[in-house]
Simulated assay, not measured.
Amino acid sequence: MKISVVIPTFNSASFIKNTMDSVLAQSYSAYEILVLDDGSTDDTVLILRSYGSLITVATQKNQGVAHARNTLAKLAQGDLVAFLDHDDLWHPSYLAIQAKAFSLHKNAAAVFTKHITFKNDTELANWRESAPSLTIEVIPSDQFIRRYNRSTGTFYSMSFCVVPKMILTSLGEEPFPLTAAGVDDFFLCNQFPLYGPVVLTHGELVAYRLSPNAQSLDQMKNFGLILCHYEHLERVFRAQNRVDLLRLVDCEYASKQRSYGKILFCLSRKTEARKHFLDSLLRSWSPVSMAKSLALLVLSFLPPPFTLRGQPRYRG
C-alpha cells in the first residue's frame, strides 16, 4: 500500500526540521514525501533543500494552506494521502498503524488517529518511545457527522488524517474549498460520510503543537466562516441525493448557529444573536434541536439573573 505524505509549509524554519525528521523516522516508509512551500520569507526552503532526494520540494507564491493542500493532493501518486501540518510531529509508528487500519477496513473514507498536544519539543521524549494503542474503531457515516461536528479536538487537524487518493480525486479540483479558506478541512471532512465509514485508531500517534495564535482558538472566527459557507455542503449532499445525511448536516448547522449566537450574546451583540437562534430554530429537523434553539431565544429576552449566559469567544 503506497502512502504519499504531503506537507504545506510557510515560515516554519524554527520547527520544520523536527517535523521532517518525524516523517523520515517512520517504521513504514512513505512512497513519497511532497512538500509545498507557500511563499516563505525565512529559511524554510533552504532547510527543506538540505534533505536532498529524500523529499520532493516545490514552491509557490503565498496563496494559503487550502491552495497548497489542493496542489499537493493533485500531485500525490500514492494509494493513500497522509496530510501533515508543518509544525506537528508523527510517532514513529504512525504510518504503519494507519496503513494497517486501511488494510483491515478497505471501504474506509478516511482514517484518523488520536493525538497529544505540546508546546515544547522537550515534552515528547517519553511519547516517542511509547507503545501506542492498537485499538481501531469504525464510525458509521451518520455517527461521524455528529461526532466530527461536536468534537472538541479528536478530528480537528489534517495531521491526524489519511485519505484514499481516489476520494480526493472524486472531490474535484478543490477538495479543500478556497472560498472557505481557514475552515477548508471542515468541508472536506464533512463529505467523508458520502463515501463510507470513518476509522479512528485510538493510539496517540500525533503530537499537535499548541500555538497561542492558532486560529482554532478563535471560536467566533471559526463559526463565522463555517456558517458563511455551509450552503456549499448542503449543495453537495443534495447533489448526491443523500437526504438522510442532509438532515443530520442541517441539525449540525443549527447547532453551530446556536454556538455562534451565544458568542455574539456574550459580546452584547444581542440582536444578531437572536437572529441566529431564530434561524437555527427554523432550520432544525430534530425536536431536541428545535427545543434548544427555542430555549436560547427565550432566555435571550429575559432580564438578569434569568437571562442567557453567553459563550466566550476564545477556546481555552
Score class of each variant (00 low, 15 high):
residue 217 L to E: 01
residue 220 M to Y: 12
residue 190 N to F: 08
residue 238 R to N: 04
residue 219 Q to N: 11
residue 188 L to W: 02
residue 189 C to P: 00
residue 192 F to I: 03
residue 127 W to G: 03
residue 199 V to L: 03
residue 255 S to M: 11
residue 249 V to Q: 15
residue 171 L to Y: 11
residue 131 A to L: 07
residue 243 V to G: 06
residue 239 A to Q: 12
residue 232 H to S: 05
residue 157 S to V: 14
residue 185 D to H: 10
residue 247 R to V: 03
residue 214 A to H: 12
residue 240 Q to H: 15
residue 248 L to I: 13
residue 133 S to Q: 10
residue 218 D to Y: 09
residue 132 P to A: 06
residue 120 N to C: 02
residue 211 S to N: 10
residue 120 N to E: 10
residue 226 I to S: 00
residue 252 E to M: 15
residue 171 L to G: 09
residue 127 W to I: 09
residue 256 K to Y: 04
residue 240 Q to C: 07
residue 199 V to P: 00
residue 201 T to W: 06
residue 228 C to N: 12
residue 209 R to I: 02
residue 132 P to F: 14
residue 207 A to G: 14
residue 195 Y to L: 02
residue 165 K to W: 05
residue 203 G to L: 06
residue 191 Q to F: 07
residue 162 V to D: 01
residue 174 E to N: 13
residue 113 T to D: 03
residue 214 A to T: 03
residue 118 F to E: 01
residue 144 F to W: 02
residue 210 L to H: 11
residue 115 H to V: 10
residue 186 F to W: 14
residue 147 R to C: 01
residue 135 T to S: 11
residue 146 R to C: 01
residue 216 S to T: 13
residue 154 T to V: 14
residue 124 L to E: 05
residue 193 P to V: 11
residue 236 V to A: 09
residue 147 R to W: 06
residue 134 L to K: 15
residue 210 L to S: 06
residue 118 F to Y: 15
residue 181 A to P: 00
residue 168 L to W: 07
residue 132 P to H: 13
residue 168 L to G: 05
residue 151 S to T: 14
residue 162 V to A: 02
residue 191 Q to M: 09
residue 230 Y to E: 02
residue 183 V to G: 00
residue 222 N to R: 15
residue 180 A to R: 14
residue 189 C to A: 12
residue 183 V to F: 06
residue 243 V to P: 00
residue 229 H to S: 08
residue 165 K to L: 02
residue 185 D to V: 08
residue 202 H to P: 01
residue 175 P to I: 08
residue 220 M to S: 03
residue 121 D to P: 14
residue 130 S to A: 14
residue 186 F to D: 00
residue 153 G to M: 07
residue 154 T to I: 10
residue 120 N to A: 04
residue 141 S to P: 00
residue 232 H to D: 05
residue 188 L to K: 05
residue 193 P to W: 15
residue 214 A to M: 09
residue 156 Y to E: 02
residue 254 A to R: 09
residue 143 Q to T: 13
residue 202 H to E: 09
residue 207 A to E: 06
residue 146 R to F: 06
residue 152 T to K: 13
residue 244 D to I: 14
residue 192 F to V: 02
residue 211 S to W: 01
residue 158 M to S: 08
residue 167 I to N: 07
residue 214 A to D: 07
residue 240 Q to S: 12
residue 217 L to A: 05
residue 185 D to R: 10
residue 256 K to L: 04
residue 252 E to F: 12
residue 245 L to S: 05
residue 254 A to T: 08
residue 255 S to T: 15
residue 187 F to A: 02
residue 142 D to E: 12
residue 135 T to Y: 06
residue 207 A to L: 03
residue 145 I to A: 03
residue 129 E to I: 14
residue 231 E to I: 15
residue 238 R to Y: 03
residue 232 H to W: 12
residue 232 H to E: 01
residue 247 R to P: 00
residue 196 G to A: 06
residue 211 S to K: 11
residue 188 L to C: 03
residue 115 H to R: 15
residue 124 L to M: 08
residue 190 N to M: 09
residue 127 W to V: 04
residue 213 N to P: 00
residue 245 L to I: 11
residue 229 H to E: 07
